[in-house]
């Protein structure tokens, strides 16, 4: 079972190389274009990442993150969630940079191999920035009445968090 994840990335590279060989010579040019685009995206992300990581590292250093976690620990414990996950849960629906900042602070704060970090990783990988996605998708075409979009997206997000906690308990090995 543990071999499956290790196969994913090499297999993707293998398929890409095979596909490039079968198609015409321009496939590698496409790689270079896309790689350049990836570089630019990362560079463009740095300013907002800088602001948000400064803010979240203030939140952790001031003790606010722990205080918030403490405050919500009762409710979270009832749901089977470790309270240290709070900063990630608050930022995840709103922004990618903010949740990346919260995620990296969280794993350096509670150790990369802790259960909280494992759970945070699964939540990060299985959810998206709900508010951002829904508002960008709709505002781009001038839709004002989004009907059940936001409630449905949040319902899925809540399910995602609770189901992650359940699945992580099965998969997490010390």
């Amino acid at each position: 079972m543990s071999a499956v994840p290790e196969y994913v990335l090499p297999s993707i590279l293998f398929i890409a190389a095979l596909a490039a060989l079968r198609s015409d010579a321009s496939a590698f040019d496409a790689f270079l274009d896309g790689a350049g685009e990836g570089l630019r995206t990362t560079a463009k992300l740095l300013p907002s990442l800088c602001a948000l990581i400064v803010a979240t590292s203030m939140m952790f250093a001031s003790g606010l993150a722990d205080a918030l976690a403490e405050l919500l620990s009762g409710a979270f414990a009832a749901l089977g969630l470790p309270s240290a996950i709070t900063p990630l849960l608050i930022t995840r629906p709103i922004s990618g940079s903010a949740s990346t900042a919260a995620y990296t602070e969280l794993i350096s704060h509670s150790g990369p191999d802790s259960f909280v970090s494992f759970l945070a990783s699964v939540i990060m990988g299985s959810s998206d920035t709900v508010v951002y996605v829904v508002s960008v998708y709709f505002s781009s075409v001038g839709i004002k009445r989004t009907r059940h979009a936001m409630p449905a997206a949040f319902a899925v997000m809540i399910f995602c968090i609770l189901f992650s906690a359940f699945i992580c308990r099965i998969f997490y090995k010390v």
């Binding site: 596909a19 590698f28 496409a30 274009d33 896309g34 790689a35």
Partner: peptide, 17 residues
Amino acid sequence: VMCLWGGIMSLMTAAGM
């Protein structure tokens, strides 16, 4: 990673994957 992944995805698109 962003560089590699962007490149791979663009290659996959160009190759019809």
